[in-house]
Design a protein around this nucleic acid. Sequence first.
DNA 1: AGTTGTATGTTGGTATACCATCAGTCCATA
DNA 2: TATGGACTGATGGTATACCAACATACAACT
Lengths: 226, 226
Amino acid sequence: MNDTPDDLRIDQPPATLRAMTVERLRGAIISGRFRGGERLVERTLCDQLGVSRSVVREAIRFLEAEGLVETQARSGPVVAKLDWARAHQIYEIRRLLEAEAASACARVADARIKEDLRQALADLEVAFEEATPIRVYEATTRFYETIFLSAGQDISWEVVQRLNSRISRLRALTLATKDRHTSGPAHMASICQAICENDPAAAALAVREHLTEASEIARRLLEAEE
Amino acid sequence: MNDTPDDLRIDQPPATLRAMTVERLRGAIISGRFRGGERLVERTLCDQLGVSRSVVREAIRFLEAEGLVETQARSGPVVAKLDWARAHQIYEIRRLLEAEAASACARVADARIKEDLRQALADLEVAFEEATPIRVYEATTRFYETIFLSAGQDISWEVVQRLNSRISRLRALTLATKDRHTSGPAHMASICQAICENDPAAAALAVREHLTEASEIARRLLEAEE
DNA sequence: AGTTGTATGTTGGTATACCATCAGTCCATA
DNA sequence: TATGGACTGATGGTATACCAACATACAACT
């Protein structure tokens, strides 16, 4: 049985090689497969990815603009390093933007949005029980995406996502941290609750608390690491 | 006379073609030479810029990640369009980030920083009298750069600059607007004053007022335009 | 006249070729 | 032995070649 949607549009994303390459590389970097400071040798990547240098290079330019890769002329691209000074700044920016978004979301949230949030939260908790990091990541992303987009702040969401990719390794670590097992989802639950009660101030507060703690955990991890 | 600095290091920025191309293209877009929605035909750009397609394409990838260019597969790069919904979001984000930076700057500002700010402000006022938009732009940029960097918020500054390039056409228009002639520098003067008095709250407030007005002017311009 | 098939040109996507630079190595010479 | 220079390999920067997809125009057929 071929399922036939209402409209017959064919809009298969042709998924250019470049787009796929960007995804793969970004994934490799944020998953920690490539360490900070590690060189990204173009021809080697070509072999590993099975694409030509043009594709690899354009993908690298994209990641460079995202801040994930730094390239100094005549020396080539290098995975951007992350120190606490930068990570701290990123957490502070997220604090501002996410608090604002949550507050705006709480102002406009209707039944549909609340349902989406609860669903994402439920998925998150399941993923936590199962200890499947990818699911946790996806559910978390969906939770925040709902908040930002329903608040009509898609540009802010774009900025946050970009920043997140730069601290993704830290996020992965914080998610794996045990004491976050209880407090992380707990904080997100209280964010969800505040939004469901259409209480902007409480929502903003919950976000700030959440990020304060996440930031603190990240700092400890980062300093312990070196 | 060859001036010989203390250290003999030769670190002439080799200025890759790509970097120069990015600059040129970005400049052409933010100056309005390429309108929103306009197609960027690669081979044409090659002729105009005198570089090969590889260079042009990599530059476009960079601008794409910056949000200045959007490219849909099989249709090619297009200059991103700017509607009020997006512009408004950008102004709101700037409000948050700049208020935070100004407040932090006011907390730490020493004599040196205050001097830099006053100098930038003085340059700005001269440029206003002379009605030289480029100087105005430069002085304004330097003013805010001082604020952000002295507050140790270089990532935030990076984000703001990127956002600014997306609304640069609007900024140019608002700068040219007459009633901003009095209020624009006036607001910036009060920001400067608040920082010089090391008054974080006043600094944040001044920034918010400034941006509220700039945003309002931008809205009128954008809606009048269509 | 309307519709459909086809030829063609434009454009972006991809791959490859070439060159300059840099670092390391090894040999020749003082 | 130490120094300098030439050679070589690796790498990034740049240019070009080829192909597929799409748009347009025109011709042919009903």
